[in-house]
Amino acid sequence: MKILLLDDHALFRAGLRLLLQALDRSVTVFEAGTIAEALAVAAEHADLRLCLLDLSLRGEDGLAAVADIKAVATDIAVVVVTASDEPATVRACINAGAMSFIPKSSAPDVLAEALKYVMAGAVYLPAAMAVSDGDWAPINLSPRQRDVLRGLCRGLPTKSIARDLGLSEHTVKDYIAALFKALDVHNRTEAVIKTGRLRLLPSEN
């Protein structure tokens, strides 16, 4: 798996790289300190799987970087790893196309678990946004619905989801409409957030 780290603090990037490689020895990590550097890496490596991105980039708009990177590498899953964990910030990042949100303030063991979760293809959100099992009714999804939901959570456009699953775009749109109804949500952002809160997607491992 190829992972891109976008953070303007070299020391944090180094620590995160070591942690990622400790979690999975097969991981290849690329580093960038600016949005321009990140876009150059994304353009060169079409098989990047994840981008771990800090919102607090000196002199740059980290939130805009989420959409910028997705525009260059539509299949990449962006995970925001940053200091703030305000619900409004989390929602803005998901709305921009991020798959998950990990607060930098997380304890080391929590950070490691969160990284393992997103590396396995699942959605991770701050603990404050999670709900207990007693607060929601079980949502039963078919295997194909879960496949489409996983694509939505990675921020993939409908065309890419259709290509990956060997379906027509029309069929994928029908699945998305059915998912919105099952999840009782109105858009992709709400679907991703609810998926993370309820831990609906098992890991790919």
Rank of each mutant, 00 (worst) to 15 (best):
Y124S: 04
A128T: 11
S84E: 04
S100G: 01
K70S: 09
A96V: 12
V123C: 08
T74D: 12
V110D: 06
G121A: 07
L111K: 11
S105N: 07
P108N: 02
P103A: 10
A98L: 01
S106H: 15
M129R: 08
R91N: 04
A98V: 01
A107K: 07
S106V: 14
Y124P: 01
S106C: 15
V110H: 10
D109E: 13
P108T: 00
G97C: 07
D109T: 11
V79W: 10
K70H: 07
Y124N: 06
E113Q: 15
P108K: 02
I69D: 03
V80H: 02
T82V: 05
I102N: 02
G121R: 09
E113A: 15
M99H: 03
A92H: 06
T74P: 12
A120Q: 13
K104T: 10
A120V: 11
V80I: 02
V72C: 05
G97S: 05
L111A: 11
C93A: 08
D109M: 14
T82E: 02
I94S: 01
P108E: 02
A128E: 09
K70A: 10
C93E: 00
E86G: 01
M119Y: 13
A120R: 13
F101A: 00
A114Y: 15
V80E: 02
V72S: 00
S100Y: 05
V110I: 15
V90N: 02
I94T: 01
M119P: 10
A67I: 14
V90L: 04
V79S: 01
S84A: 04
F101V: 03
D85F: 08
P126A: 10
A122C: 08
A127T: 13
A88Q: 04
I76P: 03
G121I: 06
V110C: 05
A71V: 12
C93N: 06
K70L: 04
Y117C: 12
N95V: 12
A112I: 13
L111E: 10
E86L: 02
L125V: 04
G121Q: 08
M129G: 07
K70Q: 10
A112T: 11
R91P: 01
A112H: 15
P103F: 10
P87D: 01
T89M: 03
L111I: 12
A73H: 11
K70N: 06
A114S: 10
I102P: 07
K70D: 06
P108D: 03
M99T: 00
V78Q: 04
A67Q: 14
S84M: 05
A128Y: 06
S84Q: 05
V90H: 00
A96W: 09
K104R: 13
V118Y: 12
A107N: 10
T74R: 13
A71M: 14
V90I: 05
T89Q: 01
V118D: 07
